[in-house]
Design a protein around this nucleic acid. Structure first.
Length: 257
DNA sequence: ATGGTCGTTCTACGA
């Protein structure tokens, strides 16, 4: 089973690229973030025509997450299934696809360390961790796919000197990421590729992509039971090239399921 | 030279 994740930065703007990529790469599951759509506007029929069932969780022109699957979509859940106050944004969507529990996640950006949004980000990550502890097991087949807005290590940004007192690299954010690993998840890209310079996001400005000024902030975390079923892991830089790309590209992993 | 773009949407703001 091949599982991919892609922050598309507006599905309206990116639909031709997503259709093209699906047709060429034929993943079994594709998680999307930042669709920037309401559920009513989500182009499910377009994906159905390509052989994919889909579910979407979006309130408005901001945020929005989706899961596309050609191996079934069951037990769909929007947001945090903890019975508490619903998240203020549409950032989390769960489904079971071909026996694999899948989450498509758009973790809050944080904006800056002194912004209220940064506290929202840390609270969001803590809440995710509590849901895992209460309702999931690292011995079930589970993948948490999406834009974490966290660069877990210093090799995950092009130049740490540019990130003093910045979000995405702060100790509390990295601690939250490591807590997911500590609970029993594996960073599949790092499990296969120790190299530095492996990024999933490049700012549109300043020719960042061509200068290799990127960040590895999109991740697929897989539960430890999947560790010996992990095949290739691949960052598709081609999806960041060409006409009207997203500022993020696709991360894809294969599992022997 | 310390910016640079692109998405939402119409005026700045978010990333």
């Amino acid at each position: 089973m091949r599982v991919a994740t892609w922050n598309v930065n507006s599905l309206n703007a990116r639909l031709p690229r997503v259709e093209e990529w699906l047709t060429e790469m034929q993943p079994d599951v594709l998680c999307l973030q930042e669709t920037k759509l309401s559920d009513e506007a989500f182009p499910a029929l377009t994906f159905a025509a390509l052989g994919y069932e889909s579910v979407h969780h979006g309130y408005s022109q901001w945020n929005g997450v989706a899961i596309l699957s050609r191996v079934g979509i069951d037990d769909v859940v929007n947001g945090f299934p903890d019975g508490a106050e619903p998240d203020r944004d549409a950032r989390l969507l769960w489904a079971t696809c071909g026996g694999l529990r899948v989450a498509s996640m758009y973790v809050p950006n944080g904006r800056s360390l002194d912004d209220e949004h940064y506290q929202y980000k840390l609270g969001w990550l803590a809440r995710l961790h509590r849901v895992l502890e209460a309702q999931c097991s690292p011995d079930q087949p589970l993948v948490l796919c999406g834009d974490y807005n966290i660069a877990p290590g210093n090799d995950d940004v092009w130049d740490m000197g540019q990130f003093n007192d910045s979000t995405h690299v702060s100790r509390p954010e990295r601690d939250a990421f490591e807590a997911l690993l500590g609970w029993g998840m594996i960073d599949v890209l790092r499990a296969r590729h120790p190299d530095d310079g492996l990024y999933t996001y490049w700012d549109y400005r300043a020719g960042s992509f061509h200068k290799r000024m990127g960040m590895r902030i999109d991740h697929i975390l897989a539960s430890r039971v999947l560790a010996d079923r992990l095949g290739f892991v691949f960052i598709d830089r081609n999806a960041r090239k060409g006409t009207k790309p997203s500022d993020h590209t696709v991360l894809m992993a294969e599992f022997d399921l």
